[in-house]
């Protein structure tokens, strides 16, 4: 089953998606209509590669100071990239409060 997942883009990254606050990613949710965060990011790598590489490095690791939330849950507190995501969920990209 084809799913459409909304990815909320932080203000700092909107210039790489033509200013859009939200982009929609198409993924295959299978018969259950469930995908994973990793599948959404894989879709993002094809549809919006400049955004995806700011979230993950070449080895597919989420960058240290990037948080991903499914709804109000930080995926690091759930199953990381394997965190399930269903139609209607939103994936939010939120920079960590860090740096100098």
């Amino acid at each position: 089953m084809t799913m459409h997942v909304r990815v909320r883009v932080p203000a700092q990254l909107r210039d790489v998606v033509a200013g859009a606050p939200v982009v929609e990613v198409t993924v295959d949710g299978g018969a259950s209509g469930t995908a994973t965060v990793a599948m959404v990011l894989d879709g993002l790598a094809v549809q919006h590669p400049a955004l995806e590489r700011r979230i993950r490095d070449e080895q597919g690791q989420t960058r240290v100071h990037v948080n991903l939330f499914v709804g109000s849950d930080n995926v690091r507190d759930r199953d990381g990239p394997a965190t399930p995501i269903t139609a209607g969920d939103e994936l939010s990209v939120i920079p960590a409060v860090s740096g100098g």
Binding site: Q12, L13, R53, R54, I55, D57, R63, H65, V66, P95, A96, S98, G99, G100
Partner: peptide, 9 residues
């Protein structure tokens, strides 16, 4: 230019 963001690589 080659630059790096502490957040975005």
């Amino acid at each position: 230019t080659g630059s790096v963001s502490s957040h975005w690589g």
